[in-house]
């Protein structure tokens, strides 16, 4: 049941990708029309009929998407969007009921995850469908307004929207290639594998350091979990959900301390018109260090 529903939701994700491709292909002022529509159409294919396409072909399709993104052939389209006056008038008309759909997603996702066996992902999908239906009722919007706004949002997120899936695959790849083993053998030379305290410190600090270098905790998570987390923490009897959750936020401690995470630390500084563009990082460093130490303690206490 869960798998059928999940598959259905993936097909819906694919349809939205196709819609994004359609708007890119037909947009009057769309830059890089072919590249952009190709990118979203391939994503739509992978989501809808991916399970019936041979794995190698899917891999090649993803490579085409990566090449399109790398050569900046995927651009945000110019969408007709409602005027500020229209938005203001509608906002006054609908009032606080506007928040109902947004809250419905969270309530449905949590409720389904907590009280059924369907899991959080299916919950999120069902929540999104419910929210969409409620928005049609409360706002009286037309269907083409919903499809256009969905396509516009997807265009704005752009190729980064598939980053989490690719990074998860990267973790699997590292694992299959034995990168984790190399790292753990290297660390194993210094660290006794059965020392839980040292293992937890290596996992948390490794996440933070790698994030500081890469600027992205997601990328660090796949690598460090395969190399350090599994052999030194998870295989020592830690609760995987607790240890991994804390490892991820330990990585965020690194994000607080690095100019590499420009969108969080540097762009914000310029929006706030700070003269010292490193001021936000300077303020965050002490908190990042304190929280990193707390992460190590929490992982030792809660995961074992």
């Amino acid at each position: 049941m869960q798998n059928i529903l999940l598959e259905l939701l993936y097909v819906m994700c694919g349809i939205i990708s196709f819609i994004a491709a359609y708007y890119a292909f037909n947009g009057k002022e769309q830059e890089c029309r072919i590249g952009t529509s190709l990118f979203w159409a391939i994503l739509g294919l992978v989501f809808t009929i991916g399970r019936y396409i041979p794995k190698n072909v899917v891999g090649a399709m993803i490579l085409v998407m990566a090449i399109l993104a790398a050569f900046k052939q995927v651009r945000v389209g110019k969408f007709f969007t409602s005027s500020p006056e229209f938005k203001e008038k509608k906002a006054a008309e609908i009032g606080n009921k506007l928040f109902v759909p947004a809250l419905a997603i969270a309530v449905a996702a949590f409720g389904i995850a907590q009280f059924t066996k369907l899991g959080g992902l299916v919950g999120l999908g069902i929540g999104a469908v419910i929210a969409l239906l409620i928005s049609f009722v409360t706002t009286g919007a037309r269907i083409d307004e919903a499809t256009r706004e969905s396509a516009r949002l997807l265009h704005q997120v752009g190729p980064a929207s598939i980053l989490p899936q690719l990074l998860a695959a990267l973790g699997a790849l590292f694992n299959a290639a034995g990168v984790g083993e190399v790292i753990s053998r290297g660390i194993g030379a210094i660290l006794p594998a059965d020392n839980i305290t040292l293992g937890v410190i290596a996992y948390c600090v490794g996440m933070a350091l790698f994030t500081i270098i890469m600027g992205n905790a997601f990328a660090a998570f796949a690598v460090i979990t395969a190399g350090v987390g599994v052999p030194f923490v998870l295989n020592q009897g830690a609760d995987p959900a607790v240890a991994a959750a804390l490892a991820m936020t330990a990585g965020y401690c690194g994000t607080l301390m690095t100019p590499m995470a420009a969108n969080f630390n540097i762009v914000s500084a310029s929006i706030l018109e700070l003269k010292d563009k490193y001021m936000i990082i300077k303020k965050q460093i002490p908190v990042g260090i304190v929280l990193l130490i707390i992460h190590i303690i929490l992982m030792l206490v809660l995961a074992f």
Binding site: P164, Q165, A172, F221, A222, A244, A245
Partner: peptide
């Protein structure tokens, strides 16, 4: 989602 994805692969 990334955490459960990576852990599943591992």
């Amino acid at each position: 989602l990334l955490i459960i994805g990576v852990l599943k692969e591992l």
